[in-house]
Design a protein around this nucleic acid. Structure first.
Lengths: 149, 149
DNA sequence: AACTGATAATAAGTTTAGCTTATAATAGTC
DNA sequence: GACTATTATAAGCTAAACTTATTATCAGTT
C-alpha cells in the first residue's frame, strides 16, 4: 500500500507547488519588489540561464503561449528590467535581454529560491530533495502529447 | 552538484503539476464530463474521503479561501452533484454531500487519477513514485506560516 | 439576559494568469 | 516569384482565486 494514496496524486503536486510559492513570496516580501508577480518569475529563471532569448523560446520553456509571454515581457520592459532588440540573424525576431536592474533582481530571485531550497533540505536532506526533484523532472520530460495544438 | 539546479526548484514543481493536469485532462476528455473543470476536482477528492463536510473545511483542505470554495460548491450544486443541508449541530453551518450522480463522477475521477498514477509508475517504478510523493507530502505538511491572514 | 469576539456562509467586485482568435511581416522552400 | 511556416503582436475572453464587506449564529463573560 503506497504511503500517498493514488487518488491524492494531484493534490500532492498542487499543494507542493503552493507551499513553495508561499515560501518564496514570504521571502520576497521581506526584500520588496513592487510589480513583480508570480508569472514573471518563470521568465527570469530561463533568461538567467540563457542570456538573450526570443519570446517564442521563453514561452516554450515556461510552458505557456507566446501571446501570454508577450504580456509578461512587456510588463518587464515597462519596469525597466528587460530590453527588446532586433535580432540581427532574423528580422522577424527580437532578442530579450536583461538590463542592469533586471540582473540585480535575478540575483535576488535566485538567492530567494535557494533559500527555500535550503529550507527543504533541512526537512528532507539534500540527497532526498535532489532525488525527489529529479524524479519529477523525469516525469514531466517524458514525451506526452496532451493534445496541445 | 545536484542534478536539478537549485534555481529550478520552482519550475520543476510547476511543470510537474502542469504535466499531471494535462494527462488527467486528456483522459477525462475521453470520458466526457461537461461542466467539470480543473478547480472542481480538489473538492471532489476531499469529499470522497470525508463524506460530508463544511465549506470551510473543504476550503482549508484545498488551500483556498472559503469564498472561492463557495462558488465551486454552488456550481456543483447546480450540476446536481452535491447537496447543501443544514448542519444539525450548528445552524450557521451547512453540510455538503454528494448526490448519486456526484458519487458516480467521483468514481470516474478516481479511476482517471489512478490511470495517470500508473503512467507515472511505468516511468519511475512504483517504489520511486511513492517515495517522491511522500517527500513532497512531507515538505508541504511541514508547519509554515506564510503570512496568510 | 445582554454583551462581545469569533466563526460560517455568503455576495460583489477585482485581480491574475493564461487562453483563443486574428493580423502583419519576414524567412525559407519549391 | 508563389507558398507555407514562423515571429511578433493585438484584442478580447475565461478560469480561478482573491479582497472587502454583510449577516447570522455561537460561545464565553459579565
Amino acid at each position: 500500500m503506497p504511503k500517498v494514496k493514488k487518488s491524492e496524486l494531484g493534490q500532492t503536486l498542487m499543494l507542493a507547488l503552493k507551499n513553495f510559492q508561499q515560501r518564496l513570496d514570504a521571502e520576497l516580501a521581506k526584500r520588496g519588489f513592487p510589480g513583480i508577480r508570480q508569472r514573471h518569475r518563470a521568465v527570469f529563471i530561463h533568461l538567467n540561464v540563457h542570456g538573450a532569448s526570443r519570446s517564442v523560446e521563453l514561452a516554450a520553456a515556461a510552458g505557456i503561449r507566446p501571446q501570454s509571454m508577450m504580456k509578461i515581457v512587456h510588463e518587464l520592459e515597462e519596469l525597466g528590467l528587460v530590453t527588446r532588440e532586433e535580432d540581427p540573424a532574423d528580422s522577424r525576431a527580437k532578442l530579450i535581454q536583461f538590463t542592469a536592474a533586471g540582473r540585480a533582481l535575478i540575483d535576488q530571485l535566485t538567492q530567494t529560491t535557494e533559500l527555500v531550497w535550503d529550507q527543504y533540505c533541512a526537512l528532507l536532506g539534500e540527497a532526498e530533495l535532489d532525488r525527489t526533484l529529479s524524479a519529477l523532472r523525469l516525469l514531466q520530460e517524458a514525451t506526452f502529447d496532451g493534445g496541445r495544438t
